[in-house]
Design a binder for these strands. Structure first.
Lengths: 383, 383
DNA sequence: TTGAAAGCGATACCAA
DNA sequence: TTGGTATCGCTTTCAA
C-alpha cells in the first residue's frame, strides 16, 4: 500500500541508509546514485513518513499554539486568523508545523506533561491569559522554549511579543491634543489587566508631556523635546504636538486635562454607562479614548442620544480597527494593530529559541507598533 | 534527561512490554503490577512519547485543517476561531490533534504528498476554495478521509458540511413577506460561487411559494401548505407566511415580486453601486437581501444618502450576524450562522470516516441551519 | 562512496 | 499474567 524507505532501497538496489542519505542530500553520496535513487522515489511516489523521521531525529518540527476556547476574547477572536497566519508565515518555510491545542480539554495541570514531556511540540506559543506565572516558572525549569502573546510583567526570564499598548495610548491622546481637544478621558478596561494598565500609562505619558509643555511655556530656555521625551516614550510628532499645544494653551486659556480614567469591563453597555458618568463630571471631558470597539460603539450611541455632537463637542477615538471602527457613524479614529506581524514576531522568537540562537536579554521581548488611523470621529473644526 | 518506557521498565522491574500494557490499561495485567508500574511512572514524571506511539500504532491521531492564508475570505476570517473551536470540541476528547496547514507554502501539487502520503494526518478538513474537484478525486482514489467545509456540487462521493444557505435565503425572503414587503431583491455575490447560487435558489424558493399562494388565492380547495412545500424546502412558519401573504395580496392589490438578483463581488462599494442600480429600476424593490455584511453596510449608506428611509420605504436584511449587523443604523435583520456547529459537524463526520464507521450516503453531508435574527432594518410599519 | 547494524520509543504477537 | 522480540520507518555511527 504505502511505500517506505525499504521499498525504495530494494527498487534502487541500494541500502536503506543510502536512501536516507539521499533524502537528506548528504554530500558523501555521489551525484549518480542520488539521481538514480531520486528517480525511483519519484516513480514510486515516495514520501517519507514524517512520524518516523521525527522520532529518529528526536525533533518534533512542530510548535503548539495553545488557546483557551472556552474564553472568548474579542481581540483574539477577531485576529486569530491573522495571528495564525503570521506564525505560519515564519515557521512554515522552516518546515515546522503548527498544532492547535485547546487547554479546555487538556486541563491546566496535565497540560505541561502532555505537550512538553510528551514531546508533541518543540515550542509553545500562548497568550497571557493562559501563561500563568506558575506555568512560566515550570517551563523555565524544564528549559522549554515558549513565547507569550501579551506581556507578563514580573516573571523574569520570559519571552513575549505584544502590541505596544503604552505607545499606542500615547499616540491616541497626542492625536487628540493635536486636533485641539484639551481634556481627554479614557474609558473601559479592567484594573489589573496588563493591557489596560499599559494603555492608561500611555495615556498619562501624553498628558504629562502636554502639561510639561504648558508649564514651561513662558520660561526661558524651554526645550519641549527633552521635556517630553523625559516624560514618556514619545515620538517626534507627538512632541511637536505638545509644543503646538503649548501655543494653543496660551491663546485658549488654562489647560485643564484632568486625565479622567473610568475602568469597566469592555462592552457596549459599559461604553454607554461610562459616557453618562463622564457627562456628569464637574469638568466634562471634550474627548474620549475607548478601550475597545464595543466600548466605543456604546459611547457613540449614548452621545448621540444625549445630543452631544461628534466630533465637535466630543472627540472619540478607540483601540482596534476591527471589527467596527470603519463602519460607525461617524467612523472612528483608531489604532490599528498589525496582528499578523504579532504572530510573525512570536514565530520568529520561538524559532530563535528552539534553534538555540541565544537571545540577548534585549531580544527577549518584541513590540509591534500600532498605527494611527484618523477618521471623522476626531475631526474637530479648527478653533 | 527525558524518561522513556525503558526507564520505567527497569525501575519497576518489569518488561517494557508490560509497561506498555499498563499504559494501555490491558486487562491481562494484574491490578497489583498496574498499581506498581503506575506508581513508578508518576514518581518519575513519565509521559509516553506521542511520536513513538503513533509510529508504532501506525496512526497519526492528527487531523489537518488546511487553509489558504493568502486568500482573505471575510467569512472564514471572522469565523475561523469558532470553526477551530468546533472541530477541536469533537476531536480533542478523542485525543486527536489539530494541525493547521497553510496551502500557500506547501503548494497545491505537493500538498497531497506531504500531508497524505507523508502520513502527517489521518484526515483533512478544508474549505471548498481549496478542495478542487481534482483534489477530491485524488483523495478519493487514495481512499483518504476528508471533509469539505462548504458544499461542492458535482463531485460524487464527497463529504461536506455547510450552512444551509438555500434555506437561509428562503427564511430571509419569507420574513420580508411576512413583514409586508412585497418586492424583495437580492444583491451581492458572484455567479458560479456555490454559496451565491444556493442563496439565490433559496430566494427563488420563497418567491415561488408566495406567488403560488397568490395565484391560488381565490380558487376553491386551495391548500397553501402542500403548494408551498412543493415549491421548495420551506418550513412551516414560512408556509404560514405565504398563506398570510395571500390575504395581504387580496387587500393590497396585485403582488409584484420581480425577484431581481444583482450579483457583484461582495464589498461595500458594490453594495452602494447595486443599490443605485436597484433604485433606477422600473419597478423599484421595497426590500433588499444582501450577500454579506459589507454589502449591507454599503447599501445602508447609499440608501441614507439617497434619502430612502429604512425600514419603511426599504427593508434591508443580510447574511451573517458578524461583524456588523448588530451595530449598523438601523441594526440589521440577519441570518446568524452557527460556525462553531459547522466546525463540530466537520469534526464528527471526519472522525466517523477515520474510524471506518461506514457513513450511509445520507450521512455524507450535513447542513447547519441558520437562525433568523430580526432587528429594526425590517420593521416596516403595519400597512 | 556505500552498506550493515544499532537505535529512536513505543506496540503487538507469541511463548513461557 | 508476564516477558522476549520483532516491528513501525527513518537516522546515524562505523566498517568496508
Amino acid at each position: 500500500m504505502k511505500v517506505t524507505i525499504n521499498d525504495i532501497a530494494k527498487a534502487a538496489n541500494v541500502a536503506k541508509s543510502t536512501v536516507s542519505k539521499v533524502l537528506n542530500d548528504a554530500p558523501s553520496i555521489s551525484e549518480a546514485t542520488k539521481a538514480k535513487v531520486r528517480a525511483v522515489m519519484r516513480e514510486m511516489n515516495y514520501e517519507p513518513s514524517s512520524l518516523a523521521t521525527r522520532l529518529a531525529k528526536q525533533k518534533g518540527y512542530n510548535v503548539g499554539l495553545v488557546i483557551d476556547l472556552s474564553r472568548k476574547s474579542d481581540f483574539l477572536n477577531a485576529s486569530f486568523y491573522d495571528i495564525i497566519g503570521g506564525v505560519e508565515s515564519v515557521i512554515g518555510p522552516l518546515d515546522y508545523e503548527l498544532t492547535i491545542g485547546n487547554i479546555e480539554h487538556v486541563g491546566r495541570e496535565r497540560f505541561v506533561s502532555r505537550f512538553v514531556l510528551g514531546r508533541k511540540v518543540d515550542g509553545l506559543i500562548m497568550d497571557n491569559s493562559i501563561l500563568t506565572p506558575e506555568l512560566a516558572r515550570e517551563l523555565n525549569e524544564l528549559n522549554f522554549p515558549y513565547i507569550s502573546i501579551g506581556e507578563i510583567p514580573g516573571v523574569a526570564p520570559l519571552c513575549w511579543v505584544d502590541i505596544n499598548n503604552r505607545r499606542g495610548a500615547a499616540m491616541l491622546a497626542s492625536h487628540l491634543f493635536t486636533r485641539g481637544y484639551r481634556n481627554p478621558a479614557f474609558i473601559g478596561g479592567e484594573r489589573g489587566d496588563p493591557m489596560f494598565e499599559a494603555r492608561v500609562a500611555g495615556f498619562r505619558d501624553a498628558l504629562a508631556a502636554v502639561e510639561s509643555a504648558r508649564d514651561r511655556a513662558n520660561k526661558p530656555g524651554f526645550k519641549p523635546r527633552e521635556r517630553a521625551a523625559a516624560a514618556g516614550a514619545l515620538r517626534e510628532e507627538e512632541i511637536k504636538a505638545a509644543a503646538r499645544q503649548k501655543e494653543k494653551a496660551a491663546e485658549a486659556g488654562p489647560f485643564m486635562a484632568s486625565g479622567t480614567v473610568l475602568p469597566g469591563y469592555a462592552n457596549e453597555a459599559n461604553g454607554r454607562r461610562l459616557v453618562r458618568e463622564l457627562l456628569a463630571l464637574p469638568s466634562v471631558p471634550d474627548a474620549i479614548i475607548c478601550m475597545s470597539n464595543l466600548v466605543a460603539f456604546g459611547a457613540l450611541e449614548e452621545l448621540r442620544e444625549q445630543g452631544v455632537s461628534i466630533p465637535d463637542e466630543m472627540g472619540v477615538a478607540t483601540f482596534d480597527n476591527r471589527p467596527l471602527a470603519p463602519f460607525t457613524t461617524p467612523p472612528l479614529t483608531c489604532l490599528d494593530m498589525d496582528t499578523f506581524a504579532l504572530g510573525a514576531a512570536a514565530g520568529e522568537m520561538l524559532m530563535a529559541q528552539i534553534n538555540g540562537l541565544e537571545t540577548a536579554p534585549s531580544g527577549r521581548r518584541r513590540w509591534v507598533e500600532p498605527e494611527l488611523v484618523v477618521r471623522r470621529s476626531t475631526e474637530k473644526k479648527a478653533t
